[in-house]
Amino acid sequence: MVSAKYKNHAITVSSIVLFGLLWELVASIEIVDKALFPPMSAILGRFFEMLGKGDGTAPSYLMLRHIGATLFGLLAGFFLAALVSSAIGLLMGINALVYQWLRPIITMFMVVPNIATVPVIILWFGLGMKTVIIIVIMGASFPIIYTAAAGVQSIPQKMIWAAQTAGATRWQILRTVVIPGSLPYLIAGHKLALGRAWRAVIAAEIFASTAYGIGFMIYDARTFFDTESMFAGIVVVGLIGLMLENVIFKYLEQNTVVRWGTTTEKRI
């Protein structure tokens, strides 16, 4: 079991390293201009340069400030969305009437690309972190609502009956059956939502950020034809995303759905 786990980690790390090497190779052939397609070594070099104390022309620990701003916007928006949307979704799953009335509205909003709402949110709330967080909430909410409702509906009627017969009140059924029973769906929905939240936070920062944030950094670097910084930003988003996914969700899944045998994903 343990060796299989380490093998999986090894494969994860190796595949990323290999991708980086391939990038380096392609860039070094110079099919494309290095200024447009910088080698991975230059991208990482820029990343570490920005991570450290600046040389006076740029603020020190600049990369950390960008990462910090992005993570704050991402996580604040994601957790607020998780809280509110889980509640809405569970309610939709429990109550058929609520489901029938909310589903059309939510379906409608779900097909609207997140970025289409950015201009109006900026008009309402101005530039800055508040706007970024609101855009992230809007991006992350819908998958959670949908999957939470589906999760509740996946619970067998007879399981509810078994709980009622054991004397469970409505509140006890919610706590002891509905929430754990829809957890496999909730986890899948939150994974999806975190992906959406990443897209939203970067898009929001491009338009609504004033000083910090990886999205802002990427867009700002465009002004100076600084492709190395742009790619450094992209690499950072990908790596942090991978880490969050592996750390938060893997841990949560191991201790719940995998242990219970109710996981929605096939185990490899």
Partner: peptide, 13 residues
């Protein structure tokens, strides 16, 4: 009353 179903419906968690 206590109930037992054909499909067991135990709580997996």
């Amino acid at each position: 009353r206590g109930i037992v179903f054909q499909e067991y419906v135990l709580f997996p968690w």
